[in-house]
């Protein structure tokens, strides 16, 4: 491992330590109770944050690669909102649905949502790269409006906040294990890294190099939809991770996914952990949901990215 890589892993380990040590219950007393707190609450929460953060960052990278645009991610372009719509519909039609059924509904809705987004986004002129995030914001906003309208009608508004604002405080042992599927999706993205980089050069170059472009598109959408659906089902919508981290990594390390994907995963985990820990200490002993802290940190970062890109043409 390079020196930079070692430093990155050290930062992540330090953040994991901070996450394990931060909370209302005091672990310094030791004893069986402290071990229980650690194993039932703190460790699952930390693992969930790492999995979700890494997964969303990689999903953002995959989406940007397929859309050939740096300014989209599952959070702003409607994928996570679509997953929430899927959960809402599943809740309405089958209130006692087991978790796998809800998960399936969320995944299918996320697949449809991101598929429609990419199909529509391809009609945008490639000479105007800033139209795509604007279109994504509107598209995501329309879906959110639909979700709110249905929830309001069905008297389910109080649930809405759970899905639309991500929060790790409810994560306990036995209630987050589904998230390990995100690790499989990150693995799939790593396996496809070269093909994804080639796909970023466009359909024609990809086809010329013997890439089955449509298959690549389907697998990429599967990664984006699965990660988004798992995230929304277990912890709720988390914004901006998929946008900011791949952009920063691209600036520092380039766009060859074989080399950058581990950095994107690591950066996503670190940023989400930092914001989750921040949310836990800002109003201690109360918590600010990670969706809110990331929303503030992320929006500022996103604006800075856009401004920089505009200035440099």
């Amino acid at each position: 491992m390079t020196r930079a890589g070692a430093a990155g892993v050290l930062v992540l380990v330090a953040l994991c330590g901070a996450s394990l040590a931060t909370g209302v219950a005091d672990l310094s007393a030791g004893g069986a109770e402290s071990v229980d707190t650690l194993l039932i609450s703190r460790l699952p929460r930390t693992l969930a944050v790492v999995l979700v953060g890494a997964g969303l960052a990689v999903a953002g990278l995959v989406m940007q690669t397929l859309a050939r645009n740096r300014f989209v991610d599952p959070g702003i372009a409607g994928t996570e909102q679509s997953a929430a719509l899927g959960i809402l519909l599943a809740t309405l039609l089958w209130p006692a649905a087991p978790l796998p059924a809800t998960m399936l509904a969320a995944t299918l809705a996320a697949l449809a949502g991101s598929g429609v987004f990419l199909a529509l986004a391809q009609r945008l002129p490639p000479t105007e790269p800033h139209l795509m995030p604007l279109f994504g914001l509107i598209y995501g906003g329309v879906i959110t409006a639909g979700v709110t309208f249905v929830a309001w009608h069905m008297d389910l508004l109080q649930y809405l906040d759970i899905w639309l604002n991500g929060d790790f405080s409810g994560v306990l042992r036995g209630r987050y294990e589904l998230l390990w599927a995100i690790a499989a999706m990150v693995g799939l993205a790593w396996w496809l890294a070269d093909a994804l980089t080639i796909a970023s050069l466009g359909r024609e170059v990809g086809t010329g190099l013997g890439l089955d472009y449509d298959r690549m598109l389907r697998l990429g959408l599967l990664i984006v939809a699965m990660v988004s659906a798992l995230t929304v089902v277990v912890v709720g919508l988390i914004p901006f991770v998929g946008l900011i981290v791949p952009n920063l990594v691209s600036r520092l390390r380039g766009d060859n996914l074989r080399g950058t994907l581990p950095w994107v995963a690591l950066g996503g985990a670190a940023l989400t952990l930092a914001c989750d820990v921040l949310g836990r200490v800002l109003r201690y002993p109360y918590e600010i949901p990670v969706g809110t802290t990331l929303g503030v940190v992320g929006a500022a970062g996103f604006l800075a990215l856009l401004a920089r890109e505009l200035r440099h043409g």
Partner: peptide, 29 residues
């Protein structure tokens, strides 16, 4: 193989990385 006139936007890849993708049909990365 084909090279078209308009390749569209390109990312932050080095020349060597790009040329190396020519080997993709043989080595799959």
């Amino acid at each position: 193989t084909i090279m078209r006139q308009d390749t569209g936007p390109v990312g932050r890849l080095t020349v060597r990385e790009l040329v190396g993708f020519g080997r993709f049909p043989h080595s799959r990365g």
